[in-house]
């Protein structure tokens, strides 16, 4: 057999080259996360070693036990509560509106959709000021409800948008078949349209959940009681002051507050992508 340079390139260099670049880019992109986990598992003595040590010589969970207290449990609880309720409320309300916009000849439909789209870019502090005044008048300041409302408001446009694009792709005939068979609209919506929109419902609920889990500023300005703080508020308001130089402790906390959402996302990533892509990339 004759040695062939192009065969070598095509058979080995390109495949292995691609594999190596893919591996390297992934490694670089997830390296901050790896570093976070690695630091959290280090013993205090190893943290400041130079050159940086990626794999701890001895795995230690000390820092986890050190920072895990009722305060952390409380902010996690608050965050889960707010994020879950905001996700459910924004998704259900968004889906209902999206159904109406998708199926009925509502006047000014395209303007409404354009409004929803552009409201994603509205200056949030501008919204927050009047919301602050309104919530104060309603006596809702310093309640978790104020945060749920805030997070619902800023995510509702995207849930409407995602759900509408998804529902647009469900053939109307399926609903008509059910209608002919005697189903009411409510039954059609809850027993046919919503089950068929599962990927989009998952995507929007997850989107709201992630946004809420991330959101710092509503919590910062609407909440004053320390025991109502969510994760971002709790960390920035109390933890950062107390643990300024306890790097292993801070990284452990970082890992702990990432885990709930990380786990959800591991399981729902595929579904999320399907809903997101079907909902945003039309046709």
């Amino acid at each position: 057999m004759k040695f062939s340079f192009s065969k070598l390139v095509r058979g080995y260099i390109i495949p292995y080259g691609l594999q190596a670049s893919a591996l390297a880019s992934t490694a670089i992109l997830i390296s901050p996360i790896v570093w976070m986990v690695s630091t959290s598992l280090k013993k205090e003595s190893e943290v400041f070693d130079r050159p940086p040590v990626w794999i701890p010589s001895e795995i230690s969970f000390d820092s986890y036990f050190r920072i895990m207290n009722s305060f952390v449990a409380n902010i996690l609880y608050n965050s889960i509560l707010v994020a879950l309720l905001a996700a459910i409320i924004a998704t259900v309300i968004g889906a209902m509106t999206a159904y109406a916009l998708s199926r009925f000849a509502i006047p000014g439909k395209s303007t409404i959709m354009l409004f929803f789209l552009s409201s994603l870019a509205f200056p949030i502090p501008l919204l927050m000021m009047s919301m602050y005044i309104l919530l104060m008048k309603m006596g809702l300041l310093d309640t978790l409800l104020s945060m749920i409302i805030g997070h619902t408001v800023i995510t509702l446009p995207i849930t409407v948008w995602l759900m509408k694009n998804f529902i647009d792709q469900i053939p109307k005939e399926i609903e008509e078949a059910a209608y002919v068979e005697g189903a009411s609209f409510l039954r059609i919506i809850f027993f046919i349209v919503f089950p068929l929109s599962m990927p989009a419902l998952t995507a929007s609920a997850l989107f709201v959940f992630v946004t809420s889990w991330n959101e710092l500023f509503f919590g910062l300005s609407f909440i004053s009681s320390p025991d109502l703080r969510t994760v971002p508020v709790g960390i920035s308001q109390s933890f950062l002051q107390e643990f300024k130089t306890d790097w292993t402790g801070m990284m452990s906390l970082a890992v702990i507050v990432t885990i709930p959402i990380g786990i959800i996302f591991v399981f729902l990533q595929k579904s999320f992508l399907r809903g997101m892509i079907a909902g945003s990339v039309k046709g």
Binding site: A22, P32, V210, W213, N214, P232, M251, A254, G262, Q269
Partner: peptide, 29 residues
């Protein structure tokens, strides 16, 4: 590419790391 699905999932997984965590992490890095 072999494992390209895994690479994609791993990279996409970083999308849910909360901003507050990123802020602390960036401060450390």
């Amino acid at each position: 590419i072999r494992f390209s699905g895994l690479y994609r999932s791993l990279i996409f997984q970083t999308w849910v790391v909360p901003w507050i965590v990123i802020a602390i992490l960036w401060g450390w890095i």
